[in-house]
């Protein structure tokens, strides 16, 4: 049984100004096994962060089931869900914003214990906080400080300490390194890898950065406008992407080797609007150089391309760099 299983999860929002609806997440299914890292990759508006919040039930899905350890979280009462949260944690992108600026580091990291481990007395709790701070590479003395007195990397370590102190099984990492500097990012990624090994954690790693995803995860799900377009083992998806979007995303990665340049594939124009009503057809069709009439008139679903590798593209067999770059349309349109 997978640790986390999403089945047909959807979430809509009312668009700002009351015009139409935003289909933030449409009919998403995903599995995460214990101890595994699954990456959710996508650009802005892809719905990847919304999906993370649906997993944590920080948002209620409109449809679908979120099963964690076999329990459908959407069916739990507020109280039952609160108890479940000790096993299901989160680290956010903005390290400073996700910490109460007027609470000491010790209080922030110790708070989950007050909620979930009521038997613990104050001394024992402080001891656990000290141990956890050390485990994430912070000095125990930092417990008396305020978040604003720490650097960005240290603040993110505090966020991680708060997430692991209740011994969770799954942590949703919502772009945990995106706002950090390169050298700090490397420190945090190494820390997350160490913690996963030591504590047997499973991660849902939300990111827009292919290099990071390739480094940290075993499986990957590529999202675009609320839908998963391709999913499979990270090595296979990156070596042989079958969805034109995945291929374009990979080719947008900039190698740090000046002599290596990746194929230049461009999607046409900018990311579409999730407010557009679209009952059938592929979400990428308006931007896809490979799109044919059938892409706009059929219902497109994820289908198995090879074992564990699913692609939502009717031309998945044919996808190639040549097909994509031949039809490059220069620049963007509105």
């Amino acid at each position: 049984m997978p640790l986390l299983e999403l089945e047909g999860v959807s979430k809509q929002f009312h668009a700002r100004g009351g015009k139409g609806i935003v289909r933030a997440v449409s009919n998403v299914s995903l599995k995460i096994n214990a101890g595994e890292t699954v990456a959710l990759i996508g650009e802005s508006g892809s719905g990847k962060s919304t999906l993370g919040r649906l997993v944590l039930r920080l948002l209620e899905p409109d449809e679908g089931a979120v099963r964690f350890d076999g329990v459908d979280l959407t069916q739990l009462s507020v109280k039952e869900m609160r108890e479940m949260r000790s096993k299901l944690q989160v680290v956010f992108q903005e390290p400073f914003e996700s910490l109460n600026p007027r609470m000491s580091i010790g209080d922030i990291v110790g708070e989950p214990l007050i909620i979930h481990d009521r038997g613990l007395n104050s001394d024992a709790r402080k001891q656990r906080v000290r141990e956890t701070l050390e485990r994430v590479g912070l000095s125990p003395d930092s417990s008396t400080r305020l978040p604003g007195q720490l650097s960005g990397g240290q603040q993110q370590r505090v966020g991680i300490a708060r997430a692991i102190i209740t011994n969770p099984k799954l942590i949703v990492l919502d772009e945990p390194t995106s706002s950090l500097d390169l050298s700090v990012r490397a420190q945090i990624l190494s820390l997350l890898a160490d913690l996963q090994r030591e504590l047997g954690l499973a991660y849902l790693f939300i990111s827009h950065d292919i290099s990071t995803v390739e480094y940290v995860s075993q499986r990957i799900a590529v999202m675009y406008l609320g839908e998963i377009l391709e999913t499979g083992p990270v090595s296979e998806v990156i070596r042989d992407p079958r969805h034109p979007y995945t291929r374009a995303l990979l080719s947008s990665r900039l190698s740090t080797d000046p002599n290596e340049s990746l194929p230049r594939l461009r999607l046409i124009g900018d990311i579409g609007s999730p407010t557009e009503v679209r009952a059938i057809g592929c979400v990428l069709a308006p931007r896809c150089p490979m799109a044919i009439d059938a892409c706009r008139s059929q219902i497109i679903q994820l289908i198995e391309f090879s074992p564990n590798h699913e692609v939502a593209c009717i031309r998945a067999e044919e996808t190639s760099d040549a097909l994509l770059s031949n039809s490059i349309s220069g620049g963007g349109s509105n």
């Binding site: 944690q89 910490l99 109460n100 708070e111």
Partner: peptide
């Protein structure tokens, strides 16, 4: 964001108001 984190930790509303909202 830190209020969202508070919810994710499982802090009940009265405590959230007392410990997180009021001091701010």
């Amino acid at each position: 964001r830190f209020m969202e984190a508070t919810t994710a930790v499982g802090v009940p509303l009265p405590r959230a108001l007392r410990k997180h909202v009021l001091p701010n």
